[in-house]
Amino acid sequence: MSAAKLNVINACWSTRSGDPILKPLSLSLNAGRVMGVVGANGAGKSTFLRLLYRYLKPSQGSIEIDGRDIWSLSPRLVAQNVAAVLQEQPTDFALTVREIVELGRTPYRSILSTKNENDSTIVDSALRKLELSEFAGRRFGTLSGGERQRAMVARALAQEPSLLILDEPTNHLDIRHQLEIIELIRDLDMTIVTSLHDLNMAAGVCDEILLLKQGAVLAFGPPQTVLTNQSVSYAFNVSAQSEKLMPTDRLHFTYTLMGRT
């Protein structure tokens, strides 16, 4: 599966009572690019991601993958194109790690079909990439939080999506595995949208940044133009100060509470 172009066209979402949670926004993300979604708690990050993986239907507007509205496609076809790794994890702890990862192949099977050699090859590859081969026979419920997170990323990779949605993918991970997930994001041949709390990480791994505040877009574009001291301070209600780290010119932020030094 090749990377897909993502278009968000005047999409928004409101509750049944009409309360706007995500205000109309439009953006385009070219195939193979990585977009970070950042903002304070309640900014609308999770709602935006839920629109992308078709958990929520936009109140108006559309989400398109390679020019096709995802709500015009069958659920199976969407699942073959879009994979999501969420903060919520499966509750069926009796499954083994391999069985969890094999679930990523479900959209490619008919009701009567069984696992085949190609499925096994893809699952083996996903387990290796996430350094989970030795855990393949372990019950999911016996894993640490970080190991479970890696298993969920492996399941998404086994799905072979053209668009990968990651909701705080480094949660529960130690520093080493955080770095491994970031390296994996950089190396994957797919379009990726990920929410991140760590702005320094977002600036280092993302091609584009979507900055949200209270359900509205503050800015969208390259990290260097979106993550300014002024925009970060306003979005998070802090005093933000950035510097460029040599020799890569990567942005690095430090923060203080408003009115304090």
Results as ranks from 00 to 15, higher is better:
Met1Pro: 03
Ser2Thr: 09
Ala4Thr: 10
Cys12Thr: 03
Trp13Leu: 00
Thr15His: 09
Ser17Leu: 10
Asp19Val: 15
Pro20Arg: 13
Leu25Ala: 08
Ser28Arg: 07
Leu29Ser: 04
Asn30Val: 02
Thr47Glu: 03
Leu49Cys: 07
Arg50Trp: 09
Arg50Ile: 07
Leu52Ser: 10
Tyr53Pro: 03
Arg54Thr: 12
Arg54Ser: 15
Lys57Gln: 15
Pro58Asp: 08
Gln60Phe: 02
Gly61Leu: 09
Gly61Trp: 13
Gly61Ser: 05
Ser62Lys: 08
Ile63Ser: 01
Ile65His: 00
Pro75Val: 09
Pro75Gly: 13
Arg76Asn: 11
Arg76Trp: 10
Leu77His: 15
Asn81Val: 00
Ala84Cys: 10
Ala84Asp: 03
Ala84Trp: 10
Leu86Val: 10
Glu88Trp: 00
Pro90Cys: 06
Phe93Pro: 00
Glu102Phe: 15
Leu103His: 13
Thr114Phe: 04
Asn116Thr: 09
Ile122Tyr: 04
Val123Cys: 07
Val123Thr: 08
Asp124Lys: 12
Phe135Met: 15
Ala136Asp: 10
Arg139Cys: 05
Phe140Val: 08
Ser144Thr: 11
Gly146Ser: 10
Glu147Gly: 04
Glu147Pro: 03
Gln149Tyr: 14
Gln159Cys: 07
Glu160Ala: 13
Leu163Asp: 02
Leu163Ile: 04
Pro169Glu: 06
Asn171Met: 06
Leu173Ala: 08
Ile175Gln: 09
Gln178His: 01
Leu179Thr: 00
Ile182His: 10
Leu184Ser: 05
Asp189Pro: 08
Asp189Ile: 06
Ser195Met: 12
Met201Phe: 01
Cys206Ser: 14
Glu208Leu: 10
Leu211Arg: 13
Val217Ser: 12
Phe220Met: 03
Gly221Arg: 06
Thr225His: 05
Val226Ile: 06
Thr228Cys: 02
Tyr234Ala: 13
Tyr234Gly: 01
Ala240Trp: 12
Gln241Glu: 14
Thr248Val: 06
Arg250Tyr: 04
Phe253Glu: 02
Thr254His: 13
Thr254Tyr: 13
Met258Gln: 15
Gly259Pro: 09
Gly259Lys: 01
Thr261Met: 01
